[in-house]
Amino acid sequence: MPFKKDFSPYVPRPATLKEKKKLSELVTLFTFELDNGKALAHRPGQFIQLSIFGVGEAPFSVSSPPDPSKQTFELAVRKIGAVTQSLHAMAPGQKVAIRGPYGTSFPVLDFVGKDTLFVAGGLGYIPLRSLLHYQLRHRSEFGRIIVLVGCRNPQERIFTDQIEELTARKDVEVLETVDIPDAAWKGNVGVITTLFPKIPIDPTNTSVAMVGPPIMYRFVLAECRKLGINPNNIFVSLERKMKCGVGKCGHCMINDLNTCMDGPVFRYTDIEAYQEAI
């Protein structure tokens, strides 16, 4: 790849916060626009590095689907530490700085003509939403769209109104569950794998996209195996500590893979043999 001698991968570009929408107590949806007037040009599953100068930088998945008609992009961020707290304190009109998009994406073409099983645990819905909404915009090119959503408790559910809309649609099958219900919760109770028996899946024609907390993958993969889904058609996005985002700092390694460049989205069969992956 030709790189200019004065190109520094560490320089972010300014972006302006356009809108803010609370999704849950800790998670807020942020809409940004790059100040250079260009679109972010990301693919579903990629992430960016967001800087709040003086505080630091942190990686976030782009939650909105690629959309040529739009300049803006969305991040859904949980308030948990230094950068995320500062971001949550910002008001529309204020600026941040962005590097990226970085990393691999869900190979959209691999999903064409097939059923897609989305498995979203907790914040995993955020990156999956990009692929999901991409598929919804090109609905006819994809088979069934099955969305399994799991959360620890009803208060932590995010994108609830969008999930409600999806549930109402005839061409999307949505199943939700929570680990720990409250008095008002009428839906399923149990970990996300308890949803599998509740929905018929054609293992010969289904691709899986799953993102969730580290503990989730092993159990969901076991369910997929039980169903007989081809492991070649399973895609996971993995989270790791990240600093540079460009394959240099060593923080994000899974054995000898750099999650920031070789991932975060992996075909399961590509990482099956890596002891540190799942």
């Binding site: 100068f53 600093k243 540079c244 240099k248 700092c249």
Partner: peptide
């Protein structure tokens, strides 16, 4: 050669730098 990234800002909060340091 693994490294961390750290921000520092001046007293007036006008400018700053981001550095890497050995990790």
């Amino acid at each position: 050669y693994c490294f961390d990234l750290v921000d520092e800002v001046d007293d007036k909060l006008e400018t700053g730098t981001r550095s890497r340091s050995w990790d």
